[in-house]
Simulated scan of single mutants.
Amino acid sequence: MTGLLDGRRILVTGALGGIGAALIRSIEAEGGEVVGIDRPEVVARDGAHTVHGVDLTAEGATTRVHDLCRALGGIDGLVNNAGIEHRAALSEHTDDDWSRVMAVNLDVPFRLSRDLADLLAAGSDATIVNICSIAVTGFAGQVAYDASKGGLQTLTRSLAVELGPRGIRANAICPGFIDTPMLDTGDLRGLAAKVARGLPLRRLGTPDDIGHAVVWLLSDRSRYITGQSLYVDGGMIRS
């Protein structure tokens, strides 16, 4: 029995987080080969997975990632999943807070998409999937995060237009409240439970819900879809 991603090589950033681990499971279950990237300190603590430790915000990071992908003979997909959040009132967001969130959530996907485009274009039906968020709609207390994800959504559209003629599709996944350790920061888990009770599907999402959606966008089942944002949110955003 063949998988949706048989023989396809996929780069996944933020590979050891709750969603990242699900991405690896889902991709490998469909026959894909994963090049996982996460922060060196996270990789050092993990020890159970074969993931490369790279600080993607550091100078020369994309060159190192490019070399890892070339060693595989190229890549067929890029999943920009790495992201950080900063929760505070607007008045308490410092310039450093803003810059740090933008560096990880927006600058890194831009650089990886730019610097890996030639490798992606060398294959067939190459795909970029950016992990955005329902935060693109805007929430109180997380202005930097919301702006970074909104920027990533727009970057996705621009990539679709510019890279489409080279055979590269670009789409975004916008997760809703997903049951990961990130919900254990501050009051997020209580807020998520309250939101879930009012959703059409009446539950939080799971990391595997995101993994399955990403696999579909990486596969040729979605080969005529580009420049789109898929909300995987239990029905929270309905327009």
Rank of each mutant, 00 (worst) to 15 (best):
M1V: 08
T2N: 00
G7I: 14
G7R: 14
G7M: 14
L11W: 00
L11E: 00
T13N: 02
G17R: 03
G17F: 04
G18R: 03
G18I: 08
I19L: 08
A21H: 11
I24L: 15
E28I: 13
A29C: 04
E30I: 04
E30T: 05
G31T: 13
G36Y: 03
I37F: 01
V42H: 09
V42D: 14
R45E: 13
R45A: 15
R45K: 15
A48L: 15
A48C: 05
T50E: 06
V51G: 08
T57L: 02
G60P: 00
T62P: 01
R64K: 12
V65K: 00
C69M: 12
A71C: 07
L72D: 04
L72T: 10
I75E: 10
G77A: 03
L78Y: 03
L78V: 15
L78K: 07
V79L: 03
V79N: 09
N80A: 07
N80S: 10
N80M: 06
N80I: 12
A82G: 07
A89N: 07
A89P: 07
A89R: 14
L90R: 05
S91R: 10
E92K: 14
H93M: 09
W98V: 14
V101G: 01
V101I: 13
A103H: 02
A103T: 02
V104K: 04
D107F: 09
V108C: 01
S113N: 07
S113E: 08
R114F: 08
L116M: 10
L120V: 03
A121W: 11
G123V: 05
A126E: 07
A126V: 13
T127K: 11
N130Y: 14
T137R: 13
G138R: 00
G138N: 01
Q142T: 06
Q142M: 09
V143T: 02
A144Y: 10
Y145T: 07
Y145G: 01
D146G: 12
A147L: 03
T156Q: 11
V161Q: 11
V161K: 10
L163I: 10
G164D: 09
G167K: 08
N171P: 01
A172I: 15
A172G: 08
C174N: 15
P175V: 15
G176Y: 06
I178S: 07
D179V: 11
L183F: 11
L183W: 05
D184A: 14
T185N: 09
L188F: 04
A192I: 13
A193P: 00
P200E: 13
R203C: 04
T206F: 01
D208Q: 10
D208M: 14
D208H: 03
I210C: 06
I210H: 09
G211V: 13
V214S: 08
L217T: 10
L218P: 06
S219L: 15
D220S: 11
R221Q: 12
Y224F: 11
I225G: 01
T226F: 00
Q228Y: 05
Q228W: 04
D233V: 00
G235Q: 07
I237E: 09
